[in-house]
């Protein structure tokens, strides 16, 4: 089985090929130039133990939607997206055509919108504050991740939001 994986933050169209194969009780995995043989067991819930040449690695893996996985280990956590080759190809051609869709920014935690700092149609630069969100008694400025035009603002001041709710779109 061939899949494409990419870390959160990598762009659509990017990614690394991974080839997975059963080899007896183990898995043979090719990633880039490297080949690993690993034993994988599930212990409780999301907990996985991997043995690679005798080295033990404990990770926790939780699916988040259809294609994303939150992987946690002793050093923290990261989100990994897994795509089948067809989906990846479709993404690549979209990216090549340059028709990048508007970039949508979501609330990373539940809270309340304190202020909206720009208007639809405004030009913003990467890093510019767009919405101020209050959570846990602290105000946090949600910034534009890329430069562009604010195409839509989806919230207004005073409104409560859940984590994952869309806040604004930059085209």
């Amino acid at each position: 089985m061939k899949l494409i994986v990419r870390r959160a933050g990598e762009r659509p169209g990017d990614g690394t090929w991974v080839e997975l194969r059963r080899a007896g009780d183990e898995f043979e995995v090719r990633i880039g130039e490297r080949v690993y043989h690993l034993d994988r067991v599930e212990t409780n819930g999301s907990i996985r133990s991997f043995l690679i040449d005798g080295d033990q690695h404990e990770l926790s893996i939780r699916p988040e939607g259809e294609h994303s996985y939150v992987v946690s280990g002793s050093g923290g956590m990261e989100v990994v997206e897994v795509l089948d080759p067809l989906t990846h190809l479709a993404e690549q051609s979209r990216a090549d055509a340059g028709s990048a869709a508007a970039h949508r920014v979501t609330a990373y935690m539940p809270g309340r919108v304190v202020a909206v700092l720009v208007q639809e149609g405004d030009q913003v630069i990467a890093g510019q504050g767009v919405v101020v969100l209050e959570a846990m008694k602290m105000e946090n400025e949600i910034q534009a991740e890329s430069s562009g035009i604010v195409e839509r603002i989806l919230v207004e001041a005073g409104q409560p939001v859940e984590g994952g709710d869309a806040l604004f779109e930059i085209g």
């Binding site: 898995f27 995995v29 990770l59 002793s74 050093g75 923290g76 897994v82």
Partner: peptide, 23 residues
């Protein structure tokens, strides 16, 4: 700076791919 999720940098990617494949 934050430490790596796993000492083996490839492992989170591999683990997610295996999870997806098995799922």
């Amino acid at each position: 700076e934050p430490a790596h999720v796993s000492q083996l940098a490839d492992l989170p990617l591999i683990a997610a791919a295996l999870e997806h494949g098995l799922r």
